[in-house]
Amino acid sequence: MSLNQYKIIFWDFDGVIKDSVHIKTKAYLDLFPKADAVIKGKIKDHHLRNGGISRFVKIPLYLEWNEIEVSDENISKYLAEFANIVTNAVIQSDWIPGVEAVISQKLKNQVFVIVTGTPQNEIESIVEKLNIADKFDKIFGSPAEKSEVIKSSLIHYPINPKDALMIGDSESDFKAAYQNGIDFLFCDSGEESDFSKSFLGNRIKDFRSYL
């Protein structure tokens, strides 16, 4: 597989551009220090299986699992605490090896789109601080749904699905690609999940083989 064969590439962020999946996994667990091992295991497994899904969906669910009232006040409180934990840590985390060079080698006629579960204003700020905003034609964060972003982007540019690729690290990324009939490249972050164990398609650990 050559990345140059695609007219549009959709990029997840955590685990694909930045090695930050473990940061968010730990942050979700740290939100609930009183949770027992069973609940913590359940949270970790759910997060890893659904890496591309927004914290706005996950945190209310995790509150429920911890028998904490799922109120607007509690949701806002836990969202703010989560954001405080992860933003700087994500910026300071390691790049996925080779990804900076691959992004910088983008062809003139290619379209690069970030599509992530990170909130819109947060991902825009992170990308700006990393000095890679000029490499991406569009940046989509939560509450945008990945499948809808792919669908609308293919119409907007317009680009045939056979000329499109999604690079992600989770089952939800794969589903967004599959629902739109585009190719999927699994960036395996090394975090064990049922999806990682069962996925049989194209898989990479990092981008050094594309240099």
Rank of each mutant, 00 (worst) to 15 (best):
M1A: 15
M1S: 15
S2R: 13
N4K: 15
Q5Y: 10
Q5T: 13
Q5N: 15
I8D: 01
F10P: 06
F10T: 11
D12R: 04
D12A: 10
V16E: 02
V16Y: 00
I17V: 14
I17E: 10
V21T: 11
T25M: 07
K26Y: 09
K26P: 01
K26W: 08
K26A: 09
K26C: 09
K26V: 09
A27F: 07
L31D: 01
V38W: 10
I39L: 07
I39N: 03
I39R: 01
I39A: 03
K40C: 07
G41E: 11
H46C: 11
H46E: 08
H46G: 03
N50I: 05
G51M: 04
R55H: 12
L61M: 14
L61Q: 07
E64C: 07
W65N: 03
N66W: 06
I68N: 04
D72S: 15
Y78T: 10
Y78C: 06
L79W: 01
L79P: 04
A80F: 13
A83D: 12
N84P: 01
I85T: 13
T87N: 12
T87Y: 08
T87D: 06
V90C: 06
V90F: 06
I91R: 06
Q92T: 11
Q92P: 08
Q92S: 13
P97F: 12
V99I: 11
V99M: 08
E100F: 02
V102C: 06
V102L: 09
I103S: 05
K106R: 11
K106S: 09
L107Q: 15
K108D: 15
K108G: 11
N109I: 13
V111L: 04
V113P: 01
I114F: 08
I114T: 02
V115N: 00
T116V: 14
T118P: 08
P119D: 15
E122C: 04
I123F: 15
I123A: 04
I126Q: 00
V127F: 12
V127C: 13
E128D: 14
N131F: 06
N131E: 13
N131V: 09
A133H: 09
A133P: 05
D134Q: 14
K135F: 05
K135V: 13
F136K: 03
F136N: 02
F136H: 04
D137C: 11
K138H: 12
P143R: 02
E145H: 11
K146Y: 04
E148W: 08
V149K: 00
V149L: 00
L154Y: 01
I155C: 09
H156W: 13
Y157Q: 11
I159T: 13
I159A: 04
D163G: 06
A164D: 03
A164R: 02
A164T: 07
M166A: 09
I167L: 10
G168W: 00
D169L: 08
S172A: 12
S172E: 05
K175G: 02
Q179R: 09
N180S: 11
N180V: 12
I182E: 00
I182T: 03
I182M: 03
D183N: 08
F184D: 01
F186A: 00
C187Q: 03
C187M: 08
E192S: 11
E192K: 10
E192M: 13
D194M: 07
F195C: 06
F195Q: 05
S196L: 08
S196N: 10
S198F: 06
F199Y: 13
N202H: 15
I204T: 07
D206Q: 04
D206K: 02
S209Q: 07
L211D: 06
L211E: 07
